[in-house]
Nucleic acid binder design. Structure first.
Lengths: 131, 131, 131, 131
DNA sequence: GTGGTCTAGACCACC
DNA sequence: GTGGTCTAGACCACA
């Protein structure tokens, strides 16, 4: 399910964190759900277990998950509350960024709106790899 | 004019490249226009001249600018053609990414459209610093 | 194996790039072979690691190698295709240059041919250091 | 007559020196012939007069030319003698280099001979720009 | 251990 | 003054 882009400038551990936050945000991961094991996820993503471990460690520090030694990592009860705080501001920020980006490329408001709706109605066969 | 975010994951030289590409795309920089000198831009951005030099070198390798030793770096005639090739695909990629992002956060198509238009009509007081 | 001439006008990073291209061209380096580490090669050549890094970076930008962070740089699968495109044109260019050079020094076609064959049959005790 | 390649790694003043040496070597410039003025040559080559001046200065230091203040630069009587010393060794070195180059690209002796003769019999419409 | 980015500062070719 | 190369050495992400 989770994907990482090793050619991106964004560190892999950041990409992993973001993916889990999204799963929590949309309810695919609920409080006390078990996350995949560090080793399994590392194997699946073809990356080093240390990298996954770092993502999990930081998610724990931010309160989204908790660890039971020898058992695994679980979504925290707090995650629901944290989600509500973060979600809208993250999306707003993302949208503002992309709008600003489009303006810098010289598009007017109407052009931005038209292109956005065009893309919204386009099946996402290929997703740009981003950076 | 140009700004860089030293706390971003995106390398500074990459941010500089992108800024100049946007200026070329918008027509603020036209073929044979002189770019700011490496030293001047480095001073202005409070970064090392080598970092600016790398951005310029890569822009040259990609065909957007050319260099006259002892004189400076200039926008290439080819930049106009390269711009047309790159611009739309970059914007489409950016839009697809943000739409995908919103979907992962659990928004439906109508919610995405509504939020996007809301942000498009909001004066951008605070621009997210991005990554 | 690789040598660089620090007194040459050709930048060291360019000499390194050329050496690796030749090794790829000859088949001494095959797709997915590991290149020497940046630090090792720098130590061996008595130059700065940054200089090797620049050579590797440009080889990557040209598609000859790919990089796995934390693991090393590897010859790309594409290198074989790129080689076929570049090799003949490089050699033709080199030969044309030397023929032109000899003509400028006043040699006729027969003299050039005679001298070239003489050198071709001479064991290369001393190789000129070039520029 | 003289050409320089501003994109080459070889300094322009070196290219200019080499060109004049060749003209002397093949007798197009004879002892006491007047060289083009620094300003004229600079204008013709679209470069800075300082660059031409440096080439002339070094040619004088090497004994190929001499300067009459206010009159210009002239080919020295010594140039003929110096030419005989330099010419053959330069050509041999150049040929040895190109043969070595071809070998490094994996060509056998017969292949080198065949390609060289092919190029020798090809009208040099396009001369590679070299480095 | 690997490579990647960045800094500080040197020296050179060219204008 | 301009850009280009190189060095020495720091810090980071990743294995």
């Amino acid at each position: 399910m989770i994907k990482v882009d090793t050619s991106s400038f964004i560190p892999i551990y950041e990409q992993i964190k973001k993916e889990f936050k999204k799963e929590i945000f949309r309810g695919d991961l609920k409080p006390n759900d078990l996350l995949p094991s560090i080793r399994d996820l590392a194997t699946e993503l073809l990356i080093n277990p240390n990298t996954v471990a770092r993502a999990y460690r930081e998610l724990e520090m931010e309160g989204f998950i908790y660890t039971r030694k020898g058992k695994g990592c679980y979504v925290s009860d707090d995650s629901t509350r944290l989600m509500k705080e973060e979600r809208k501001s993250i999306l707003i920020q993302t949208f503002d960024e992309v709008i600003e980006e489009a303006k810098k490329y010289g598009l007017g408001r109407e052009e931005i709106k038209r292109l956005f709706e065009e893309r919204l109605n386009t099946p996402p066969e290929i997703i740009g790899k981003g950076e």
